[in-house]
């Protein structure tokens, strides 16, 4: 039981322990998708989907760090923090973390340009990553830095990941793992600075609590990213409780009737639902439709968005 005065600051060790507990409970190393990745259970398609989508997260990191730089009036802080931009962007073309991730993509059998184009990023991944940038942009400096503290847990996950890739996914060229290697040292260094910063600048218990909340929110965002990646490989099918019928007011359209609601589905939606056979994954459905309609822009993203909405409304189920 916590009997301390809620006005009292937690001591540095106590505060750090509370921050770390968030990771113990919620960091995405415990997400089922990550567990399967590290256990060698992902298919080639699944691993590629992760690499392709996680790149979007990588591209948001420099935006987030630029926003943080803009919040500080302290030269010493900026000198330290700007290192993160150099880490991701490099000091010259062909260097830095983003470049290393694109090499991982190539090593995983993906086309570099396709990944870099961000055309095939899942809407759920986009939402999660954009939510992170948004969180940092709205926050004050303390909370923005605190949200980065998931780096406290990142060093370990990188070590495990390198081992898992070498052991289970030998078809990924070992050169491609350079990003993970770079993070095994950079993440703990960055985390140590961030931790020292929030320890010094959280001057009230309420500030400390805001830091903990920020780490929790960040963990949710990372978790949501993996949820979206995982969902792309679970085959959707019409929910047992859903009934499809023609919508006589709108020829060509469908009504999905559910226990407590009806959902209008236009002709494009109908074409997607027709492909939900419980065997094809949403990625596979998007591929079929891209081949069928090569001229339609953003088609993949629309397909995933539509299927996510249908799942939320209960029109489709996705098997685990």
């Amino acid at each position: 039981m916590d009997v301390s005065d809620p006005e009292d600051l937690w001591g540095p060790a106590d505060f750090e322990a509370r921050l770390r507990r968030v990771g113990t409970e919620r960091y995405h190393d415990k997400h089922p998708f990550n567990l399967r990745m590290h256990a060698g259970l992902l298919s080639r398609d699944e691993l590629q989907t992760w690499v392709r989508n996680r790149y979007y997260y990588q591209t948001r990191i420099p935006l987030k760090d630029s926003a943080i730089l803009g919040k500080s009036a302290d030269s010493a802080f900026r000198r330290e923090w700007v290192q993160r931009l150099h880490d991701h962007d490099g000091r010259a073309p062909g260097e830095g973390g983003l470049e290393l991730w694109l090499r991982l993509a190539e090593a995983s059998g993906l086309a570099r340009d396709e990944v870099a184009s961000l055309h095939f990023v899942l809407p759920g991944v986009r939402r999660a990553c954009d939510a992170y940038v948004d969180l940092v942009e709205r926050a004050d400096l303390l909370v923005a830095v605190a949200a980065s503290l998931t780096e406290l847990f990142a060093g370990d996950i990188m070590v495990q990941r390198i081992a898992a890739f070498e052991r289970h996914y030998p078809w990924v060229d070992a050169e491609g793992l350079a990003y993970f290697r770079s993070r095994t040292t950079a993440a703990p260094r960055d985390a140590a600075y961030g931790l020292a910063f929030v320890t010094e600048h959280a001057r009230t218990r309420a500030d400390q609590q805001r830091c903990i909340d920020a780490v929790e929110r960040k963990c949710e965002i990372l978790w949501g990213l993996l949820d979206a990646v995982e969902a792309a490989h679970r085959p959707p099918r019409l929910a047992a409780s859903a009934m499809l019928r023609e919508d006589y007011e709108r020829p060509g359209s469908l009504l999905a009737v559910l226990p407590e609601r009806g959902v209008r589905i236009n002709e494009s939606g109908r074409e997607i639902l027709d492909l939900c056979d419980g065997v094809r994954s949403s990625d596979a459905i998007a591929t079929v439709l891209r081949e069928r309609h090569p001229d339609v822009a953003h088609l993949s993203s629309d397909v995933h968005e539509f299927l996510d909405q249908m799942e939320t409304l209960g029109v489709i189920d996705r098997d685990a």
Binding site: V263, I265, F306
Partner: peptide, 16 residues
């Protein structure tokens, strides 16, 4: 390609 949830037609129509 957005679904149009619900029965919100302005004219009376029996849905249920």
């Amino acid at each position: 390609m957005t679904p149009d949830p619900g029965a919100t037609a302005t004219q009376p129509r029996v849905w249920n």
